[in-house]
Amino acid sequence: MKKPRYTPLQISIHLFGWYPLAWLVVRGLTDNLTVNPIQAISQWTGYHAIIFLTLSLACTPLNTLFGWRELLKRRRALGLYSFMYASLHMLSFVGLDYGFSLKFFTEGTATKPYMLMGITTFLILLPLAITSFKWWMKRMGSGWKTLHKLVYLAGITAVIHFAWAKKGDLVGLSGDIVKPLVFAILVALLLILRLPPVRRWASQLKQKTFTILKTKPV
C-alpha cells in the first residue's frame, strides 16, 4: 500500500490553522462579531498569531524531550500560520480600525509602546516568512539558521505586546494579566529548554527514560 501523503499531525495542523479564519468568516457573515466587530477581529487574529507562534516555538523542545521528530518538519507551517494571523491582525488595525489613515495611525497609536512592540514583532516575522521556503534556505546557507533564530525574539516581543495591550501590570502581577501571563510562562519555558545545558540535561533525561522503559519487564 502506498504511504499516505499527509500525516495525522499535518492534517491537524492545517485544520487548526484555517479554523480561526473560518470562524471569523462565519461569525462575520452571520453578524455575530459582537457589537464592536473591529475590536473582535483584531483581538481574535492577534490571539491566534501568538498561539501559532508559541506552537512553532514548542516543536524543537518537544522533540528534545520526547523524540517526536516529525514536529521539526511542522515548524514552518506553524510559523507561517502565525505570520498569516499576524498580517491579518496588522491589517485590521491599520485598515479597519484606522481606515488606512496614516495620520491617525502614526499620531495616535504608532508612537505607543504596545504598538511599537507589535510592529516590531511583525517586522521580525516578515523576513522569516519570506525566507521560509527551501529555495531561500539553500541560497542563504548557514545565514538562514542565524536569521531564523530571530523567532525567539519575536516570541518575547509578542508576549510583551500582548501584556501591554491589556489593562494590567504583568510585572506587578495585577489586573487583566492571566492570558499574557500564561503565554509569558510558556514562551519562557520553551526558550529555557533551548539553552545548551538545559537541552543536554533534557536529552539525557529522555535517554534514561527510554532505557528504563525498554528494560522494564512487561
Binding site: V35, N36, I38, Q39, L96, D97, Y98, G99, F104, E107, G108, T109, K112, P113, Y114, M115, W164, A165
Partner: peptide
C-alpha cells in the same frame, strides 16, 4: 492626555465603523 500605553484622542462609538 493619553493613557501611557494608548492614545485617547479618538474613540469608536459602538455601532459606528469610523473613529
Amino acid at each position: 492626555v493619553d493613557h501611557p500605553r494608548w492614545s485617547q484622542a479618538s474613540e469608536r462609538r459602538i455601532g459606528e465603523l469610523k473613529r
